[in-house]
């Protein structure tokens, strides 16, 4: 395992952003962490990179507990993991040229001298599909797609073992998004890094993830191999997510049976008792309001879900929603 998160908790004051979350990522695996706004998915990424300090729980990188390492002790480990951000406009220092931005990690970890930096930056820019003359440009002279490529180049130049990508294509137009997604797939295959891919968009993880974990209000409600999740989603929330995303085919879209969720997403300051999803769940019954369902792999096929109906084996098969 490159990454093992056990019972991670992160509270910001009253806000329980992440509230007991466990997950693992194997070497070379892409895990899609899916959730809607307020689910705490971005906080997980920040905790993994220790950009924020976890409240409780443990995070292991390649078998080493990094949960409470000091910033200084973290520094050498930062060669092994990096991040790609969502906003292509705020994630690059506007005062640096592209070469400075991409070369910074090399200098920081003293893996190359000035001359070597220049060569490796050129090679990396070529890898992410940017022309060499981009090196002397400033971020604001680039389009959103080009900036995201720069962000990828910076994250990958040290050949990290783990990349945390937080909504890296959500701010991009469809046609640009397609080329960046292809690029991420290619780079991942060539370089073999593991990836925690955080997104709200199921279609994106369907394209590039190996495994998927679905988050709701700070907890994972279901996880499993991609094909399993899409073919046979087990948790009612996953089913609702899948059914709510419209497909670009009017004939099919208008015939689909959609699960309409009641009410609003509750506040993470005061999450509902019992199953956190019960206030919106169309299938909720008494036990859901009082007892919290554990994440259980009832069929022992690496596809656990946290729902009383599953443990009671009462959940309807939901494959028809897609």
């Amino acid at each position: 395992m490159i990454l093992r998160i056990d019972n991670l908790v992160k509270h910001y004051g009253q806000v329980r952003a992440v509230d007991g979350l466990s997950l693992e990522i194997a070497h070379g695996e892409v895990l899609g962490l899916v959730g809607e706004s307020g689910s705490g998915k971005s906080t997980v990424g920040k905790c993994v990179l220790r950009l924020t300090d976890p409240t409780a729980g443990t995070i292991e990188l390649a078998g080493r507990d990094i949960t409470r390492l000091s910033r200084r002790a973290m520094r050498p480990l930062r060669r092994d993991m990096h991040m790609v951000f969502q906003d292509p406009f705020s994630s690059l220092n506007p005062r640096f040229t592209i070469e400075q931005i991409v070369g910074e990690p090399l200098l920081r970890h003293k893996v190359a001298d000035r001359r070597g930096v220049s060569e490796r930056v050129s090679a990396m820019l070529e890898k992410v599909g940017l022309r060499p003359e981009m090196r002397s440009r400033f971020p604001h002279e680039l389009s959103g797609g080009q900036r995201q490529r720069v962000g990828l180049a910076r994250a990958l130049i040290l050949e990290p073992k783990l990349v945390v990508a937080d909504e890296p294509v959500s701010a991009l137009d469809v046609s640009v998004q397609a080329s960046v997604l292809n690029l991420i797939t290619d780079l991942q295959r060539d370089m073999g890094f593991s990836c925690l891919f955080i997104t709200h968009d199921l279609s994106v993880v369907e394209f590039l993830a190996d495994r998927i974990a679905v988050m709701y209000l700070g907890k994972i409600v279901e996880s499993g191999p991609k094909a399993e999740i899409f073919a046979a989603p087990r948790h009612p929330y996953t089913q609702a997510l899948l059914s709510a995303a419209p497909v670009a085919d009017p004939v099919r879209q208008r015939e689909r049976r959609r699960i309409v969720l009641g009410a609003d997403v509750p506040s993470p300051v005061d999450p509902p008792s019992g199953c956190r999803f019960h206030t919106r769940c169309p299938l909720a019954y008494d036990a859901c309001r009082t007892d919290e369902p554990p994440l259980t792999d009832t069929r022992s096929n690496g596809h656990p879900a946290a729902c009383h109906l599953i443990t009671a084996d009462r959940i309807p098969d939901a494959a028809a929603h897609r």
Binding site: S175, A178, L181, N182, D201, V247, A248
Partner: peptide, 22 residues
């Protein structure tokens, strides 16, 4: 057609159709 093929759900053989250029 390019927009429709660029959607992640329209992937063929693990790749998306890109629209090159700007």
């Amino acid at each position: 057609l390019g927009l429709m093929k660029a959607l992640p759900t329209a992937a063929v053989g693990g790749r998306l159709a890109e629209i090159p250029g700007m």
